[in-house]
Amino acid sequence: MFDIGFWELLVIGVLALLILGPERLPGAMRSTINTIRSVRNMATGFKTEVEHQLRVHELHENLKKAEQQGLKDLSPELEESVDELKKAAESVREPYKKQ
């Protein structure tokens, strides 16, 4: 990610020790690590959401193609998408069938 070597990290560490002092340095490091962790988690969540939306869009486009072909003589990719959508629709209906 960053091209930071050992010597650069050592210089940053010494400067942080001189500026913050030994009593505040551990708290500052914990705070920095927690911030980096939360940014990574946010980025991972965003990436997951974008991938999910792209998959939904792909399924929607495949369903449109299948409907245009009249749901007959579909390519294996379109059949798989239609089957996946049918399974999703059935899983949504199941809780309501029990009532």
Results as ranks from 00 to 15, higher is better:
Leu9Phe: 07
Leu9Met: 15
Leu9Arg: 12
Leu10Glu: 12
Leu10Gln: 11
Leu10His: 13
Val11His: 07
Val11Gln: 12
Ile12Val: 14
Gly13Cys: 09
Gly13Gln: 10
Gly13Val: 04
Val14His: 04
Leu15His: 03
Ala16Asn: 02
Ala16Asp: 02
Leu17Ala: 14
Leu17Asp: 12
Leu17Asn: 08
Leu17Ile: 11
Leu17Thr: 14
Leu18Ala: 12
Ile19Cys: 07
Ile19His: 05
Ile19Tyr: 11
Ile19Ser: 10
Leu20His: 00
Leu20Lys: 00
Gly21Thr: 01
Gly21Asp: 04
Gly21Leu: 03
Pro22Tyr: 04
Pro22Glu: 04
Pro22Asp: 03
Glu23Thr: 15
Glu23Val: 15
Glu23Arg: 10
Pro26Phe: 01
Pro26Glu: 03
Gly27Val: 03
Ala28Cys: 08
Ala28Gly: 03
Arg30Cys: 06
Arg30Val: 11
Arg30Lys: 13
Arg30Asn: 07
Arg30Gly: 07
Ser31His: 09
Thr32Tyr: 03
Ile33Asp: 04
Ile33Val: 12
Asn34Pro: 01
Asn34His: 08
Asn34Gln: 13
Thr35Val: 08
Thr35Gln: 12
Thr35Met: 06
Thr35Ser: 10
Ile36Val: 11
Arg37Met: 08
Arg37Asn: 14
Val39Gly: 08
Val39Thr: 11
Val39Ile: 09
Arg40Pro: 01
Asn41Val: 10
Asn41Tyr: 12
Ala43Glu: 06
Ala43Ser: 06
Thr44Tyr: 05
Gly45Leu: 03
Gly45Cys: 02
Gly45Glu: 05
Lys47Gln: 05
Thr48Phe: 12
Glu49Arg: 11
Glu51Ile: 03
Glu51Phe: 12
Glu51Leu: 10
Glu51Pro: 01
Gln53Asp: 13
Leu54Gly: 03
Arg55Leu: 12
Val56Glu: 14
Val56Gly: 02
Val56His: 12
His57Lys: 12
His57Trp: 15
Glu58Asp: 14
Leu59Gln: 02
His60Ala: 08
His60Val: 08
His60Met: 09
His60Cys: 03
His60Thr: 09
His60Asn: 05
Leu63Glu: 01
Lys64Val: 13
Lys64Asn: 12
Lys65Thr: 05
